[in-house]
Nucleic acid binder design. Structure first.
Lengths: 225, 225
DNA sequence: CCCCAGCCGTCAGGTCGCCGTCAGCTTCGG
DNA sequence: CCGAAGCTGACGGCGACCTGACGGCTGGGG
């Protein structure tokens, strides 16, 4: 789960980035609308956290721009203004939810999870591919009744692959969803992660579900002949 | 997906070419506007990556020229100048997006993917010819329900043939869409690729769809008696 | 604070599939 | 029946991918 945090206060930005990262999110942090627009153009986010009152423009205008461009990424607005009017304006502009400052980092994480879990959103609590299941909230995988212990990366990887089960996920695309821009990483990192995940799946009896598509990427699908 | 990279710095050009190639793009790299214009005249690109500040002219002028000639290939401008004015000028000239240096190769790839995925979809997700289908995104082919495993080249080849199904595609034209200029290749390479593709299609039951037109090229069409 | 354990990114060496080349064969037109 | 065009089996180099080993880092005890 990759988030874009747009917040101009350095102190707060750092704090929130850390808190969210600690809760397992991959976070890109930008400090103005220009930077945010750039980030959105370069990567796909599962959620955008947007502070209003940015130095280079009105955040809500940006929301409208995004929506006009048919970008449906959920947006959570963070603001000090808590009045009902502001709230309505925000939701009208196309935001999905509001969180009024001040709040705890942990509260923010919880709210993020809630939005991502929302009905109609992309997050089903439990993903299934054949006999393989992955509980997104608890980060637990299982093959039938047999639980599979996964590390954080392995879980993230499995999640993205399962979400796009049946189609090829490019290495670049995986890299994008596993790492923020400020985490430089060799291309090999993804291979290694896949290798380790594959081993655990195999050990659990899920053989032949995670395919390599040479020159393109990886493909998750139910083991069919 | 074939890209034209226009960048005069040798070091950077090499780096980006490699990075993009690694992410599955076919890349032609030119170092000046003259070379770029030449390339555009002789091949069709899915995206142009244009550095400004080239030795033989202003890149933005070239963009305007292209647009005036109704060439709508998406253009991503790479530049060190990040000011808002420059940005506006670039977009006004007809560029589709801006990426400010310095950036990572992986970031560039991501941006390319984002642009290519943009609405306006120049690309039908699934091509059909008779019972034969090819999913351009997942690079998977199928005859009815039976999936057909294709290598990268085979997929590229099938894609071009299916896109022009019903008309003869010359060997030269195939060569152009499969290979970048800097990949020297004997004419026989295409024949071999066709041969291998034909075998896989035959094995999957798609007999007699891929015809040879002696002296001209190849023709893909539904098998009719 | 130190130590230990697990995670994970890096590296290097090995394996293997892809595909371009070649050469010999087949097909086709005249 | 000849020559040119096209086909295809064999081969080999290259590079993508895999994986075991290593070590920096982090988080949790004690």
């Amino acid at each position: 789960m990759r988030l874009l945090l747009v917040e101009d206060t350095v102190r707060l930005g750092e704090l929130l980035s850390e808190g969210l990262a600690r809760d397992g999110f991959v976070v890109d942090w930008r400090q103005d609308i220009e930077g945010a627009a750039e980030a959105v153009a370069s990567a796909t986010y599962d959620l955008i956290l947007l502070d209003l009152g940015l130095p280079d423009g009105d955040g809500l205008d940006w929301v409208r721009t995004l929506r006009r461009a048919t970008d449906l990424t959920p947006i959570l607005v963070l603001t000090a203004r808590g009045g009902l009017d502001d709230r309505v304006t925000g939701l009208d502009a196309g935001a999905d939810d509001y969180l009024v400052k001040p709040f705890e980092a942990s509260e923010l994480s919880a709210r993020c999870r809630a939005i991502l879990r929302r009905p109609g959103q992309r997050m089903t609590p439990v993903l299934h591919v054949g006999a393989l299941a992955f509980n997104v909230a608890s980060r637990q995988a299982a093959h039938g009744d047999l639980p599979i212990e996964l590390s954080r990366r392995e879980g993230d990887l499995l999640e993205t692959l399962m979400r796009r089960a049946g189609s090829v996920v490019t290495r670049g695309s995986l890299e994008e969803s596993l790492y923020a821009f400020n985490e430089p990483v060799t291309p090999n990192a993804v291979e290694v992660a896949v290798s380790r995940l594959r081993r655990k799946l195999d050990d659990a009896g899920c053989t032949g579900m995670l395919h390599t598509v040479r020159g393109l990427g990886y493909l998750m699908r139910d083991a069919v002949a």
